[in-house]
Amino acid sequence: MHEMSIAMSIVEAVVAHAQKEGARRVSGVDLRIGKLAGIEPESLKFCFSAAAKGTLAEEALLAVDEPEGVGECGECGMRFPVTFYYAECPGCRSLRITIVSGEEFLIQSITIEEEGEQENV
């Protein structure tokens, strides 16, 4: 289950930020995982809940945004959607394609709940 160690590093990063911000708990985590990133979002979600047990992020809802792959042709510069690492340029048939989007793998944001605070401390 190779998403486990990745889930653990996400939990680690999320909890570290939440602690720094003085959070009582983390209620949401937004991830951005490009369709070409080599990560299975469903498997990651499963691992996340296991990895988050007993942490501030235990009840966090994991939302995953999955941007589509975009390739750019090395010959004619055309940009077009890709679903895989190899693609043929629809403009000039070249195979020299560079992936310009879809490989993202980011913790976009976290939503935290804070302790109740007093005015004028």
Binding site: I6, A13, F105, I107, T111, E113, E114, G116, E119
Partner: peptide, 16 residues
């Protein structure tokens, strides 16, 4: 400054 508040923090941090 009121009771329990919810706040969104943008990280845009690479997971790796």
């Amino acid at each position: 400054h009121h009771e329990s508040t919810t706040r969104k923090i943008v990280l845009e941090q690479d997971v790796l």
